[in-house]
Amino acid sequence: MSITSRDGLTLPSHLTLPVGVEPSRLPLVLFVHGGPWSRDSWGYHPAAQLFANRGRAVLQVDFRGSTGYAKAGIGEFAGKMHDDLIDAARWAVDQGYADPERVAIMGGSYGGYASLVGVTFTPDVFAAAIDVVGISDLANFMRSQPEFVKPMLAHNWFTYVGDPADPEQEADMPAARRSAASTGSGHR
C-alpha cells in the first residue's frame, strides 16, 4: 500500500495483519528497517509474521532515506525521516487498524536509532520501543569506526548526518535530534 507523508511524499508500505482477528484497533508494531539506505519488500518477514501470529498489526514503511528515496533523507535523520514514521503510525490509527494507545516502534541499526528517537522525542505516539543494535550517539558511532572504514563514511553517514571531525557539523547533530520533538502527532 501507499501512505502519503505530511509533505506529499508517497511512502510504499507493507501492512501485515493477524489471521482470524478483526483488523480493528490492534496493537501495532511499526517495524523500521535498518540502513537507512535499505528497503522493505513484499515477501516473508520473520519478525512481522511472529508479531502478527501474536495478534499484532505490523507496519513496515519505506520512509525517505530508504533506497529509492535516499537523497530525500539527507540531513533528515531525526527530522523528516521521523515525520514519515509518525505519519505512517497516524495512518494506521486513522484507518482503524491500530489502537493509538498501543503503538510500538522497533528496528535494528537505523531502525533502532529511530526507535530511540521515537520514544525520546515523540512519547505521545509510541507506548514502547525495541532497539536492536541501534545507534544512540551518531558522532561517537562515526568516530569509533575502524580506520579502513572511515573513508567509506563520506558518501553515506557524513552526507546524511554530518562529519564529527567538523565542529560545526558535529554541533548540528544534537540539534537535528532535538528537532524531532516537534513532530509528535498527539495520538496518546
Rank of each mutant, 00 (worst) to 15 (best):
M173F: 00
R178W: 10
A114L: 06
A104E: 11
G73A: 04
G112H: 11
G111Y: 00
Q145K: 03
L85W: 07
P164V: 15
W91V: 02
E101S: 01
F121Y: 09
V125M: 02
A175D: 09
R56W: 13
R143T: 01
H82K: 11
D131M: 00
P146Y: 12
H45M: 01
R177A: 05
A48E: 07
R54Q: 08
S182K: 14
G108L: 04
P100W: 00
I105T: 02
D94Q: 15
E76G: 06
M173K: 09
A89V: 01
L85F: 04
G68H: 09
E101W: 02
E76L: 10
G118F: 00
F126A: 09
V149A: 14
S185W: 05
H82E: 07
N156Y: 10
A128W: 09
A89Y: 02
F121L: 02
G112V: 04
A176T: 09
R177G: 11
S66A: 00
R56E: 15
Y69P: 05
R90F: 14
A78Y: 00
R102V: 09
K150A: 04
E101G: 01
A181D: 13
V149S: 11
K150G: 11
H82Y: 11
L116A: 14
R177P: 04
D131S: 13
A176F: 05
A175Q: 13
A70D: 06
G118N: 01
A104P: 13
R56Q: 11
Y44D: 08
R177F: 08
S185E: 00
M142I: 14
F141E: 04
G73H: 01
W157D: 07
W91K: 00
H155D: 08
P100I: 15
A139N: 04
D131A: 04
A128D: 12
L85V: 06
K80V: 07
I105F: 00
R178A: 11
D83Q: 12
D137L: 06
A57T: 03
S182F: 09
G55T: 03
